Amino acid sequence: MGLSSVVAAATVALTPAVAQAPELAMLDTLTRGAWEFRARGDDDTLRICVRTGRELIQLRHRQTNCEQFIVQDDANEVTVQYTCRGSGYGRTSIRKEGSTLVQIRSQGTYSGTPFSLVGEARRTGSC
């Protein structure tokens, strides 16, 4: 083993391991319970029982067999693109304003029809 190999091995061995934050950790900081999504310009509301925060990603596609790709994963905002075979796809951005209030933008297609949702979700109580 040459000197450069020894130096490289020592450098790697002495480099501290960086702890990696869990994916979509911002969603873990939301308060669990019943949440209500209200789209801007619409009187309809969608009630959601939030257990992990990830329930807010697929508001149109409620099934669990969708493939997800994380586009942005920051402390106060996440963006996820997902595909649900046979049902459509979407891209959702969730911006945290507090542990009980988030802003949501989601668009895509559902069963061949385009959708676009912009609004806020807030915690309303227990599930």
Score class of each variant (00 low, 15 high):
residue 33 G to M: 09
residue 25 A to C: 08
residue 28 D to A: 14
residue 119 G to V: 13
residue 74 D to G: 05
residue 32 R to T: 04
residue 79 T to D: 03
residue 78 V to A: 13
residue 109 T to W: 10
residue 84 C to T: 02
residue 121 A to K: 00
residue 75 A to M: 13
residue 58 Q to T: 14
residue 19 A to R: 04
residue 49 C to I: 08
residue 110 Y to D: 04
residue 24 L to F: 00
residue 24 L to W: 00
residue 77 E to I: 14
residue 7 V to C: 09
residue 46 L to Y: 01
residue 13 A to M: 10
residue 41 G to L: 05
residue 45 T to C: 06
residue 81 Q to N: 11
residue 57 I to H: 01
residue 25 A to F: 07
residue 101 L to F: 11
residue 92 T to I: 11
residue 5 S to M: 07
residue 51 R to N: 08
residue 119 G to S: 08
residue 87 S to W: 06
residue 87 S to N: 15
residue 28 D to M: 06
residue 116 S to Y: 13
residue 106 S to H: 00
residue 61 H to I: 05
residue 126 S to C: 04
residue 121 A to N: 00
residue 78 V to F: 04
residue 88 G to C: 01
residue 104 I to A: 03
residue 75 A to G: 12
residue 96 K to R: 15
residue 57 I to N: 00
residue 45 T to H: 04
residue 4 S to M: 12
residue 34 A to V: 08
residue 110 Y to L: 01
residue 25 A to T: 01
residue 119 G to A: 02
residue 91 R to Y: 07
residue 68 Q to S: 14
residue 90 G to L: 14
residue 110 Y to K: 11
residue 42 D to G: 01
residue 44 D to E: 10
residue 14 L to Q: 06
residue 93 S to H: 05
residue 6 V to A: 04
residue 46 L to G: 02
residue 22 P to N: 08
residue 81 Q to P: 09
residue 53 G to T: 02
residue 76 N to G: 09
residue 76 N to F: 13
residue 102 V to N: 01
residue 60 R to P: 12
residue 51 R to V: 05
residue 42 D to N: 09
residue 41 G to C: 02
residue 119 G to K: 12
residue 82 Y to P: 06
residue 127 C to M: 15
residue 45 T to L: 14
residue 54 R to A: 11
residue 56 L to Y: 12
residue 69 F to C: 09
residue 85 R to E: 13
residue 127 C to E: 11
residue 4 S to L: 09
residue 122 R to A: 13
residue 86 G to N: 06
residue 70 I to R: 07
residue 106 S to T: 05
residue 96 K to G: 00
residue 17 A to K: 13
residue 106 S to R: 02
residue 7 V to F: 06
residue 64 T to M: 01
residue 19 A to N: 05
residue 46 L to D: 14
residue 103 Q to Y: 08
residue 95 R to W: 07
residue 125 G to T: 01
residue 66 C to R: 07
residue 22 P to F: 06
residue 70 I to N: 03
residue 76 N to R: 11
residue 89 Y to T: 03
residue 116 S to C: 03
residue 39 A to C: 11
residue 70 I to M: 08
residue 97 E to G: 14
residue 62 R to D: 03
residue 33 G to I: 11
residue 15 T to E: 10
residue 4 S to G: 10
residue 71 V to Y: 04
residue 127 C to R: 13
residue 7 V to P: 00
residue 60 R to S: 15
residue 110 Y to M: 15
residue 98 G to K: 11
residue 51 R to H: 13
residue 81 Q to H: 14
residue 30 L to E: 07
residue 2 G to M: 02
residue 95 R to Y: 01
residue 69 F to H: 13
